[in-house]
Design a protein around this nucleic acid. Sequence first.
DNA 1: CCTTCAATGATTGTATGGAAGTGTATGCCG
DNA 2: CGGCATACACTTCCATACAATCATTGAAGG
Lengths: 223, 223
Amino acid sequence: MVAKPAGESIAHKVERQLRSDILSLALPPGARISEQEIGELYGSSRQPGREALISLAKSRLVEILPQRGAVIARISVSKLMQAAFVRETIEKAVAKAACNSFHFHARSRLDDCLVEQERAALAGDRTTFRRFDDLFHRLLAEGAGLPMAWTVVEDLKAHIDRACCLSLRNAEALQRLVAEHRAILAAIDARDVSAAEQALNLHLSDLLRDLPRLEAQHPDLFE
Amino acid sequence: MVAKPAGESIAHKVERQLRSDILSLALPPGARISEQEIGELYGSSRQPGREALISLAKSRLVEILPQRGAVIARISVSKLMQAAFVRETIEKAVAKAACNSFHFHARSRLDDCLVEQERAALAGDRTTFRRFDDLFHRLLAEGAGLPMAWTVVEDLKAHIDRACCLSLRNAEALQRLVAEHRAILAAIDARDVSAAEQALNLHLSDLLRDLPRLEAQHPDLFE
DNA sequence: CCTTCAATGATTGTATGGAAGTGTATGCCG
DNA sequence: CGGCATACACTTCCATACAATCATTGAAGG
């Protein structure tokens, strides 16, 4: 049995690829993009490209101008700050629930997750790092018995991730994030709600502190 | 100039209609539905029906079984409770922000909103009532300077609204909800954070209290 | 020189044909 | 009568054709 006997539809593959390219800023905000060129880029027809665009428009990563075309959305500071705020309130509530009780299985996976993430940080492998960063927050929600909280946070991250990507250009920042993850987990293990909330606040406000610099440095990426 | 010279794409119209029909339980959970019959139902081809299905699948209102078809999603008690919890944490944060400062324009629109909603409640017009219920929560978020909080809550409502629809079969319940809205607004006007949070908690837990009865009464609608 | 208007090109929105996949029913064989 | 293979019906998924809409360009007229 092969790993992936095809499994996924072309439209989904295109969507994932395109989302990744947008989040990594490989496709610059403000650039126009048509269904046709997405199709050509992937060796398929317009249809999968169209469906990918519709999906990404729901995440606000592209903006569809009716009857005219689509553009890669610029980073909105206002939306970013709102998304960060909402995310923080959700994750604090998750942490509070986690302090109350935590599923054993998720807890053990979190240890592995942190090890892998630290390895990626040391290797400077941002792609892998980000994958385990997501996994950390997802496992936190699952362990607290609130898996849906992660799906909400995941949507919010669309507004945050590109700025995050800009901010994490130096390797020591990656290791700091891992340390913050450990602090969050330690507070939850100790069932110390206020410590957990404080650790989360620190973790999520890293980016906001860096935001003015990013905006000054890359004015064309912001709206 | 006519009011709407067409304006919206067929796909969007189909999506809205289908979403409405699912939320109102006109289309029963568990029923299968194909692109073709959606198209026929609306006098269009399969394409708009397909796009509507994809959109609704993102809201988890339908479940797409790859290469096989789509079914109207059943109401998940687990998802409902998680969504209600996350929603409550978000709206409490919104209320807290609202106590701090509130945009004048949104505040004045809220008064109108409540009047209209009460009128709908007295007339027993559930459709209009629901529209102004949404508007109330949206204006709350906008007034607090967090319009994005509403978009998140709106997504969460997909998991909640059908049960809510079942619960509100008697007219006095509608008027109670309006009174709860007034209580929330009064607490915000008084800048009393804990009163606002308490009023919101009461408002949103109405449904949860009723949930066991609904599940017993309509077992086929739940998963 | 500026405004107006028609032609052109590009892009989306819609319809439809065809390929591939899945579950079911049917008929055959033991 | 039960188990198995094959054929069939149904659906999604992808490709492509067509129509409608919008921006741009360029020319004509004031």
